[in-house]
């Protein structure tokens, strides 16, 4: 199976990503159980790696836009450029639209099962 650049990188990206809900020593050495919800506000809508605007309803968009407005008007933060209410663009190769290139594969060619995790 041929993989495009982005797929190859997505594959290595995935290799860095771990499951949540793990047991792991805390700073005091004690074990604690973590889930994404214990320490986070959840993943993006539809579990995408980025917040896709077109699938949001008006209320969801307004939440982002309000935060963007707060930052754009905050004199304490100087960003390289003003945040755009229309968002920023992510673009992958058109070849990656092909279904056969849209999965991560194991070295033996089998399709990896979808799993929960995070990036590092």
């Amino acid at each position: 199976m041929h993989l495009g650049n982005f797929q190859l990188r997505a594959q290595s990206y995935a290799s860095q990503i771990a499951n949540v809900g793990s047991s792991d020593p805390g700073s005091d050495g004690a074990e604690y159980n973590l889930s994404a919800d214990d320490i986070g506000a959840g993943p993006n809508l539809s579990d995408y790696p980025a917040a896709y605007i077109n699938i949001m309803n008006i209320e969801q968009r307004q939440l982002y836009m309000k935060k963007i407005d707060l930052l754009n008007n905050n004199p304490n933060i100087n960003m390289d450029e003003k945040l755009d209410y229309d968002g920023f663009v992510i673009s992958a190769s058109s070849d990656l639209k092909k279904k056969e290139n849209s999965y991560l594969v194991n070295p033996d060619g089998t399709i990896r099962e979808r799993d929960k995790g995070r990036c590092s």
């Binding site: 997505a10 539809s46 939440l63 963007i68 992510i90 999965y103 990896r112 099962e113 990036c119």
Partner: peptide, 26 residues
Amino acid sequence: GVREIPKEFLELADPSSFYPSLALLC
């Protein structure tokens, strides 16, 4: 530990618009 890039995401990313992470903005 593996996390798949959803194929739906790749299919729409040519190009498409996204907001910065809400947690990051907050």
